[in-house]
């Protein structure tokens, strides 16, 4: 008689536990009251269970954000792990929402949970997508603007993973500048 042993399915653990946050703009409430923790996960399978269940970014209402951050880091400049950091920012035109927004955001998520930045993945705090009528934004946040080697490696790898052509330049901005300046006043600390 054949003897069958049933092996339990073991999910594939991620290096980090991640938290998904959702922001829905309600101007009658303070910013922080509009931010909700959706859930946490730490396996490949649980990531997909979540991703397959929630709305694609391109279907969100304008003013909404998704943020995916390492467990314990809140998706705001004020968090201790973010306050000395900055972001690699991808700005998209209105036309890119249908063509590239979901693809870029999924690629960003896969970079984060897959630890795509080699020895510098520890420098990564999370990623954010802002859905806005005037143009969507996607960013990867890192914790230290002064760690030039890490910031540049993350930026180059991220640009490659998004499949952006060499002639497209993406910029890294310090949160300290983003928090105090707006629009054209924000200087890129690095570009790749």
């Amino acid at each position: 008689k054949e003897h069958l042993t049933i092996q339990p399915y073991v999910k594939h653990p991620l290096q980090n536990r991640w938290t998904l946050w959702f922001f829905k703009n309600d101007k009658s409430k303070p910013w922080q009251a509009n931010l909700r923790l959706v859930t946490k996960f730490d396996t490949v399978e649980d990531f997909w269970a979540l991703y397959n269940h929630i709305q694609l970014a391109s279907r969100l209402m304008s003013g909404c954000d998704y943020s995916l951050f390492k467990d314990g880091i809140e998706p705001m400049w004020e968090d201790n792990r973010n306050k000395c950091g900055g972001r690699w920012l991808i700005t998209l035109s209105k036309q890119q929402r249908m063509l590239e927004l979901d693809q870029f955001w999924l690629e960003t998520l896969l970079c984060l949970i897959g630890e795509a930045f080699d020895d510098y993945s520890n420098e990564v705090c999370g990623g954010v997508i802002n859905v806005r009528a005037k143009g969507d934004k996607i960013a990867i946040w890192t914790r230290d603007t002064e760690n030039q080697e890490a910031v540049l490696h993350i930026g180059k790898t991220y640009k490659e993973r998004l499949g952006l052509p060499v002639k497209i330049v993406i910029g890294y901005q310090a949160h300290a500048d983003t928090a105090t300046k707006s629009g054209l006043g924000i200087k890129n600390k690095f570009v790749v």
Binding site: Q15, V44, E45, W48, Y51, L110, I113, G114, S121
Partner: peptide, 20 residues
């Protein structure tokens, strides 16, 4: 031992439960 996963590996799991 760092758990680094490339995109193809991760994408391979997107519908794993749908096919079981």
């Amino acid at each position: 031992d760092k758990k680094k996963y490339d995109r193809e590996f991760l994408l391979g799991f997107q519908f794993i439960f749908a096919s079981m």
